[in-house]
């Protein structure tokens, strides 16, 4: 597919035609170089649990190659080992906030393609048997018209495996960290998935609570390991 306009700013993009583009299978780009530059890519050493760049964490909030938040999760035996590792692509800066809000709340579905090249690159490093979206409640799904995690999975050319459903819902963004973490389980699954390696997909990793709740349910259903991939790391 040749994209003529940047998905974010609508400006026209010159297709960079050349022998390499003709013969390589490189993904075409969905945004212009200006917009691409406004996303701060996560690079270098990251927390080995949550994927947050270690350089940005004050020394008192990290130990070894883990951040304090993740150490707290892992010390809690209820949560230890639920989520093996999270990968995130970009920082949740103002620009990412704007673009993700347009994707998810305004409902600009096409933006699900924006990170396809970056996601595909990341997926080469992860081994998984099933790719699972974070579900929305029925009300929320009706309101938004689509599930943003599913949209991302479909955009990458995978079939989402809807193993999870939501029990009841309250808006996450209105709660504090401790409220989120001590929330009773919001997800459930009806199938057993013995020894499967699961990859969860979501748009943002903020406290990691959503992903860990989802991972816990899957683990209890027999999954061997759960990793996750999010577009942004808050």
């Amino acid at each position: 597919m040749i994209i003529e306009h940047c998905l974010v700013c609508f400006s026209e993009m010159m297709p960079q035609m050349g022998w390499t583009t003709l013969f390589s299978k490189e993904e075409s780009s969905y945004m212009c170089t200006e917009c691409y530059a406004k996303f701060e890519k996560i690079e270098g050493e990251t927390c080995k649990s949550c994927g947050r760049p270690l350089v940005e964490i004050e020394p008192q909030f990290k130990a070894g190659n883990r951040c304090l938040d993740c150490i707290r999760w892992e010390e809690d035996h209820e949560w230890a080992g639920t989520l093996e590792r999270n990968h995130s692509l970009v920082h949740y800066n103002d620009f990412a906030k704007e673009v993700i809000a347009r994707f998810k709340y305004r409902g600009d579905y096409l933006l699900s393609y924006l990170f396809v090249p970056l996601i595909k690159k990341k997926l080469q490093l992860i081994s998984f048997d099933a790719i699972v979206p974070i579900p929305l409640s029925e009300d929320r799904l009706y309101e938004r018209g689509f599930n943003q995690s599913e949209a991302i999975i479909l955009a990458c050319g995978y079939q989402p495996n809807n193993l999870l459903t939501r029990i009841h819902s309250e808006k996450q963004s209105k709660k504090s960290r401790s409220e989120r973490i001590h929330l009773s389980q919001v997800f459930q699954t009806k199938i057993n998935i013995p020894n499967k390696k699961i990859l969860l997909i979501d748009d943002i990793y903020t406290t990691g609570s959503t992903l860990r709740h989802a991972a816990k349910v899957l683990k209890e259903a027999g999954a061997q390991s759960i990793t996750s991939l999010t577009i942004a790391r808050g």
Binding site: R102, R106, D108, Y109, L110, G145, F146, A151
Partner: peptide
Amino acid sequence: FPCARCGEQCLYCRKCIMMGR
């Protein structure tokens, strides 16, 4: 986009998306 409301591939306008789809 695959619309959860009408269940079809639903056409939407991206030009005025900032005011809701």
